[in-house]
Amino acid sequence: MPDWNKVVHDHLGGLDLQADERAEIVEELAGHLEEIFDDLRRQGFSEEDATRGCLLEVEDWRGLGLRIEAARRKESPMNNRVRQFWLPGLLTFTLSMGLLAVAEIYGPKPWILRSGNPPIMVVHIPWLLGLPVVGAIGAFLSRRAGGSRRAIFSSIVFPVVPYLAAILFISPVVLGFDHFIAHSPMPAAIPMAVLGLVLTPGVALLAGGLPAQLFFSRRLDSRRIASR
């Protein structure tokens, strides 16, 4: 008979829990596998087949470990929303801003797109090229914290949300006062701002974030309900 304690320990020995709690979980799960093994042997299965049958109980040990950690972990001061959305979101925002500052200071001259006079769009190519990595980091952190698809998506695009909010806030004011300002360029600048500050960086963030989400979803499988 396989040493089930060793089998479980090999897979779950690194659980992020207290040592005694971890040892109890390993013992309990090993006992469960031992019972299945004995049951299969009593039904006439060979030792090899019974072992195989036991191992089918867990398709994804890593996912099981994550779900056990989530279930057993003491409540931390950070709730799920903080871990799954706010923390990854603020980190992607900080990284995005830092990257933009670095691109502005040390990067090559930005690409300037003119559309009318004077609405322009300033594009920092190194910043855009770095954003997919930022999006991927946001997706990874949110996914690792067990975030839903919506939380992951929000974490990825979080850096453009303040821009979008600012534009949405400013636009009605600009449009409202436009009649009183002669030759105001602002209404024409709004679409340029949306394009340059929201859509383009948003697409760049998603270009890295969405593939990362798919990749990590496969690795960090989190089946939450019982198989039927």
Binding site: I25, E28, L29, G31, H32, L33, E35, I36, L56, E57, V58, E59, D60, G63, L64, R67, I68, A70, A71, R223, R224, I225, A226, S227, R228
Partner: peptide, 26 residues
């Protein structure tokens, strides 16, 4: 744990089955 999984499987005529991976986190 094992008795829980077995009991559920028996009482539902095998329609509901908990594997180790689905039972313990719950």
């Amino acid at each position: 744990g094992y008795e829980i999984a077995r009991r559920i499987e028996q009482q539902t005529q095998g329609k509901l089955r908990f594997t180790l991976a689905s039972l313990y986190p719950l």
